[in-house]
Design a protein around this nucleic acid. Structure first.
Lengths: 251, 251
DNA sequence: CAATTGATATGTCTTTGTTAAATGACAGAA
DNA sequence: TTCTGTCATTTAACAAAGACATATCAATTG
């Protein structure tokens, strides 16, 4: 994990990259990424707590996530924060900043993030040269919208307990689909403040709600995160069927 | 608005269509749209209350909206409903059903909807033949995600009054951008149940909240809808700067 | 060691939900 | 026209959920 100045640029294309079939941008110059605070060159690793993309900033790059956790969020003027979604391996971030003037949300790493990088300016050319990358990116954007729809339904219409159960069932299923679940359990590197800001609850109420979930045997809260124990209990409490299968047509 | 069996198929391409630069599908056979309940052929008009796209159904078509209002929503098993976003002229609906297996949300008309129609099966060919349509569709999907981010922040972290003010400020601004605002006022064809299901509140609380907004001179509630009077008051109450400009790069 | 951070616990207060009933507008029938 | 039924809105009274302030404790950090 250490990076003492030596740059060991990852070989592309990379199997875990959702856009593996298309040419990657290989950063050779430190300048090209150092505007991102906390960024390490070479392995393209962002440390825990790093703001990979910031609201209001224009983004010269898109990133695909190879490993690690992150979250997208927005804040109000007075500091109230809403976590919008979590970023897992296989996800694409920074598209908005590439298509619009600037990013309208921020992305922060929850664990060391390993990423691939694409240049914003090369996107139109990529679309031209590789028509199926357009399809893939559209697919990724559409899936993100689908997840947001679900989350909005949850925050708007589910009770605190249902919401919490939904959140961990949702994360569990997503993590499972990218091979992050071992022995049917999952370590989610969240603090209760993250959970609160995802569910739209206060941290105190979140704490009570998590205790209830733990009492039902659905999960166990640890020092720096939580461990999902029983996915089915979560699904039952949330009255949720799980994410529908979403096969990609052109990849 | 009447359609007595005579089909007067709209001429394409159409100036108001967000995908005006690309070839449209022209429906000649009634079969091609009659699976959509309440649909009229010829002008491609959906009446108020029509479910244009239904959750769980696969969608053989995409639609662009030329005029009228609609809303996207999801429901829980027990009937709780969350309105996700509103659909205005220039919007694209049904993309999810074209990329994924099936629609994960429903779309219902709030006023007679005039639409253009695209065949799902032709989308890959369109992406091949017109690389910029991919860019435009990606842009539309990204903008939808941006709006959902804002709405989620609102439902998760704003108070009831702030949320209501945000909702109407948001709708006002979107409607203004497509020329639906006359004399600085806007008629929004919503019932209070729609507002409640958008804000994640009960209908009773919604009613009280709307009365407060009306008392502050921000809007007036009428028989079957509401009229936005003062956009600035809404922005102030919601502590919101308004939607950022989002120029399209390739249209 | 002190200082900080995160989790837990409790009691009070505010916001929002639930239930029920009343009001008002409108459309169709008499 | 008047009557009547329906639907959306409004109001009221009470219950429940959740926020907030505060304190304690354990673990981490410096």
């Amino acid at each position: 994990m250490k990076n003492n100045g030596a740059s060991t640029v990852r070989q592309y294309p990379c199997e875990r990259c959702p856009l593996q079939n298309y040419p990657h941008f290989q950063p050779h110059e430190k300048d090209e990424v150092e505007f991102l605070s906390g960024f390490k060159m070479g392995e393209l690793v962002a440390d825990v707590g790093t703001t990979v993309l910031g609201e209001g900033r224009s983004s010269a790059h898109l990133f695909t996530v190879l490993s690690g956790w992150a979250f997208r969020y927005k804040t109000l003027e007075d500091g109230r924060r809403q976590i919008l979604n979590y970023v897992l391996p296989g996800d694409l971030i920074g598209l908005q900043g590439s298509l619009m003037k600037e990013m309208q949300h921020s992305v922060e790493a929850l664990s060391p993030l390993v990423m691939c990088m694409f240049q914003r300016d090369k996107l139109p050319a990529l679309f031209q040269s590789y028509p199926t990358i357009a399809y893939d990116i559209t697919w990724l954007a559409s899936r993100e919208e689908q997840m947001l729809d679900e989350i909005l339904l949850s925050v708007g219409r589910r009770s605190a307990l249902e919401r919490a159960a939904y959140l961990f069932a949702f994360i569990y299923q997503r993590a499972k689909s990218v091979g992050m679940v071992k022995n049917n359990t999952l370590m989610v590197p969240l603090r209760q403040q993250h959970v609160a800001d995802t569910l739209g609850l206060s941290i105190v109420h979140t704490n009570k709600t998590l205790k209830k979930l733990a009492a039902k045997g659905a999960l166990r809260w640890l020092d720096r995160g939580c461990e999902v124990i029983d996915h089915q209990i979560l699904l039952d409490i949330a009255k949720w069927q799980g994410l529908p299968p979403a096969p990609r047509p052109y990849i």
